[in-house]
Structures are given as structure tokens and as C-alpha cells.
Amino acid sequence: MAARQSLAFALEPRASATVDDFIADLAWAPAGDALAIAGGEGKVALAKVAADSLTLDVVGEHLLGTLALAWQPRGKTFASSGQDGSIGLWGPDGKLVRRWKPAPAATQALTFSPDGELLASAAGKIVSLWTPSGEPVHAFAPAAATAVGLAFDKPGTDLGVALNGEVAVHRIQKTRYETRRYKWPAACLTVNFSGNGRFLASGMADGTLHFWNRSTGKDSQMRGYDGRVELVGWSDNSKYLASSAGNDVVLWDFSGKGPEGTKPVVLSAHTERVGAFAWQPGGDHFVSGGRDWRVALWRPGKTPRPLDVHLQDSDVTAVRWSPDGKRVAVGERKGGVTVFELVAR
């Protein structure tokens, strides 16, 4: 009987461009035809993405650094925010539609609800909701600390806010708002709802990863990280929770009875700190990028080794899959932006 040859996947670079800035984050347009680019030094850029080219324009700036980017689901506008406190709304051609300051503090985080009807912002201790055109909808009571991370759950009814000492989850039901608090006495850096709605995870500055069972409220703590857990992400099917605080990516397996008491899967390919990672939408591929200038493609659960590795020109600082899960945009410390395509060989 002939052995069945499985397909080998790889990443192939298709297009690249450079922004004169540190690439802090990237956001794909829903149609996959544009990329918004956040510069750590402040630039906001927009790249038109074609099959084999990136046409890039710097469209604006946030003095002292761009901190967050969000593209409206199903829409044609994206939002940026920065150290200068302002939120910018940008049209499809990169034209500034509106710019405003929600509070006299840096705006650390932005996110759209999954239906694209609400934009949430975190400026200092103030978390606010806006219409997609920037009209105010609601401002929550000031938090006890600076809000550093925001995420909606999949149905879009719950907004999680990462704070020093807790993750606050605001339930949004038309004009009624209720808040539930998941407390841990450390700086919560991320907020990550599992796609199946069962868990809420948060990476902490004290070198732990927490996940709460949302129906029981039970808090589970994962330790053993080298430092701050700044990178956390659920696989599309909610099977794996990926995390990193050093050179390795640590995957907790939530299938069966969950990860408690189990040993995690460790993805080791980077020789320096992992700077960004992302799960493939609608698939089981995973891409990581590190300060070792490498981009690695993985298929966790199939093989513990990377399927493909590329060497970039500087530290990899941002990694984002296109919404269709077919391409990956990679950003670098020195300003390089490369679009790879996932190919089967």
C-alpha cells in the first residue's frame, strides 16, 4: 500500500514595501485589498495590496507613537489611536474623516464590535463607545487604572478591558450596561475571549497567564513564563490558547478536560524573544515572528517543528493574517512590511 503524502505548506513572499517607522501593528481591510499600518514613532500608513505589489502612502501621524489600529468589519474605514491621545478615522483612500480626543491621556487600545457597529476606545482610565463615524454612544465610569487592552467577544455583547488588577467585562445590551470583574492583583496586559465563548484569558505582567471559565468564574493560573505575558491568542476553533513571554510559544490544549494538570505544547524555533504571532482565521496554521528576524509557520497538533521559516531584515514586530486566511502581513522594526501567501506544495 502506498504511503499517503500529506501536503506541505509554506509561506511565499509576494510583495513588500517600507515605511520609515517601527511597524507597531498592522490591520487588514475586510476585503484583503488594503493594510493599515501603525508606526511606533507615530506614522499612520495605508497600503493597497495587489497580488504582487504593495502601494504605500503615509496618511497621517500620532505624535510620540501610534498605539492601536482597528479596521471596521465589513466596512471601508479604519481607526488609529496614539500617544497623543487622539483617535483618527480614515476613509478608504486614506483620507482623514475625523479626529478627536476622548480623554486627556494616551489612547492605548481600539477595537470594533464584530458587526462593525461600535468602536470601543481606551484612553487613560476612560473606556468609550462610538458609532463607526465617531459619534459618542457611551462612556463607562472611569476605571481604577489605565485600560491597556480591549476585545469584544464573538457575539459582540461583551467588551473586555484589561486593567491593572482586573479584567472588566462590560455587557452591552442596547442602552443597558453591566460590568463583571475578573480580578488578579497584577497588571493584566491582554484580554482574549475564546471563540466558543467559554473562556476569558489574560496575559499578566507578573509572568502568569490566567483563564477564567466564564460560566463558573473559576480562575486558572499558568505559571513558568520567563517574563511578562504580552502575547496571547486563541486558535480559531478555540482548541489552543497560544502565549509567549520569551523565545518560545506555549500552547495550552483546551480539548477534552482542558489544560489543567497537563503540559503545554512548546513551539521552539526562535532564538530571541517572540515579538508577534497570529492564528489563521478559519484554519489551524499559526505564524510567529521574533527579534531573531525570523518568521515561522506552524501547524500545531500536526508537527512540533515549523513548516517554514523566513529571515527578514530586522526584528519582526507585527504579524497579521488576512481575513480569508490566505495571506500573512509581516511588519518589522526597521519599517519593512512583507505580504506572504500560504501555499501548498
Partner: peptide
């Protein structure tokens, strides 16, 4: 703004 937390 001074935001303190204890290490683990």
C-alpha cells in the same frame, strides 16, 4: 500614573 502591582 502610578500603577503598582506585586510580582508573583
Amino acid at each position: 500614573e502610578e500603577e503598582l502591582f506585586e510580582t508573583n
